[in-house]
Amino acid sequence: MALKASQLKVGDTHSERVVENLSRTQIVQYAGASGDYNPLHSDEVYTTQAAGYKSVFAHGMLSMGLTGKMLTNWVGDARLKKFGVRFTNQVWPGDTLDAKATVAAIREENGEHLVDLTITTTNQDGKEVVSGTAIARVDP
C-alpha cells in the first residue's frame, strides 16, 4: 500500500475530488465533531445580517481535513511526518473541491525515506482554497 521511494519521481502527482457540492449540513457535522461552533459556519442569519458575508462558509479546518484525506489515501495510514497549509480563499456551500499533491523531493534523513509534497486544493472555478506542503515517510 505504501509508496516506494524507488518508484517515485519529482513531479509525480496524485489528485482526488474530496467533496462535491459541499452541503451546509456537512459544515454543521464538522462543527459538531471539531467543537468549533462559530456561527459564521452554520448560522446564515448571523453571517449575512450581522457579520456581512454573503453566506455561511466552511471552517478552514474542514478544507484542511478534506485535503488531508487525499494525502492519507495516497501516502498510507500513519505515514505523515508534517502537514501544513495556508487558507487562501474561503470555501462556500455548493463548492466542489479537488485536492492535489505533487512530489517536490525524495530524500533520506536519519535512515528514513521521505517524500516532500506540495499541496493545492482548488474549487470548481479553479481558484485555490488551500495551499501547503507535507512530508511523508515512504518505503525504500
Partner: peptide, 8 residues
C-alpha cells in the same frame, strides 16, 4: 484561520 501546520 490563516494557517495551520502539524508535526507528527
Amino acid at each position: 484561520h490563516a494557517e495551520q501546520e502539524y508535526t507528527y
